[in-house]
Design a protein around this nucleic acid. Sequence first.
DNA 1: TTTCGTGCAAATTATTTGCACTTGG
DNA 2: CCAAGTGCAAATAATTTGCACGAAA
Lengths: 166, 166
Amino acid sequence: MSTSLILISNREAGSMLDAMSDPAGQAWAVNAREVLQRAGHHRGAARERLIDLLSDQDCALSALEIEDGLRRDGPVARASVYRTLELLHDHELVTRLELGDGVARYEPADPSGHHHHHHLLCERCGQLVPFDDAGLERSIRQLSRRLGFTTKEHEVTLRGRCPDCP
Amino acid sequence: MSTSLILISNREAGSMLDAMSDPAGQAWAVNAREVLQRAGHHRGAARERLIDLLSDQDCALSALEIEDGLRRDGPVARASVYRTLELLHDHELVTRLELGDGVARYEPADPSGHHHHHHLLCERCGQLVPFDDAGLERSIRQLSRRLGFTTKEHEVTLRGRCPDCP
DNA sequence: TTTCGTGCAAATTATTTGCACTTGG
DNA sequence: CCAAGTGCAAATAATTTGCACGAAA
């Protein structure tokens, strides 16, 4: 049974990406800007900053978390954050998640499938852990075919206890 | 590859359940009342009505939809709806879903696993379709074991085009 | 110089809470 | 009676929208 696994806590992932100067994120940002430009969009400051911030991220952030992050470098309007996220989502450049706590989270979308992953939310420590599983993906592909359903996005969320929380 | 399938549109399912006088729903309602009673809860009118309404349901409803449904038979306070849903969720009697449109939906939880299912949301016609797939469940079990994660709930959402919407 | 982006504040929407009153056991 | 449930209205929290002004192509 081939199961590929990426298991990264938010904190660890941040430093990993720092260490490798985040080539994947850069690629995403470049592509995102290109897509928006082709669609006839200008390059406003807030949007540019948001794209940079998201590209440094490995896992989902809420709109308010993004706003906070941006504010550390200077003021931003909340509306710009929401509008930019909506725009990115319309162009399928971000994935929008709702993990069951009433807050929408966003993360860079990954058309190549290289960084595709799902989420596991520990109900005890609140940690959000991205994971990837080939068997699961296979099941979903087969299932979609069987149902005659054209699946554009899919999302799997596990809620429970992580290995560190007994 | 054994893949069991239940494919029911909301509308069809409603009539199906009518036709068989909803034995599963009745069982759920009985159990729900028992669980709440054991926990020392009284039987207020709003809560009783909500349990009845949910037990007739095969798939997820939002709090506002539930409120509307209840109002057809008489007035209910919105707060009672939310409080009851919270209570049922605390006792794991309902499953709470967030399918990505900012609204929480609730449906009777199924400890037996008999009616366990996931959701498929057609982005074109908006139809919410419940489905069940053995292969998918197997993948999730294996995955949880491999990650050392104790999965209490899991949720799979597919978004795309249903067979009727080309 | 026109189209798009931004900021601010006000509006919406979903959900929660405080409190006085009613009801179940 | 006492604990729990209900309704109503006001409070939050997340997200959206209208509009005037500033910036990009």
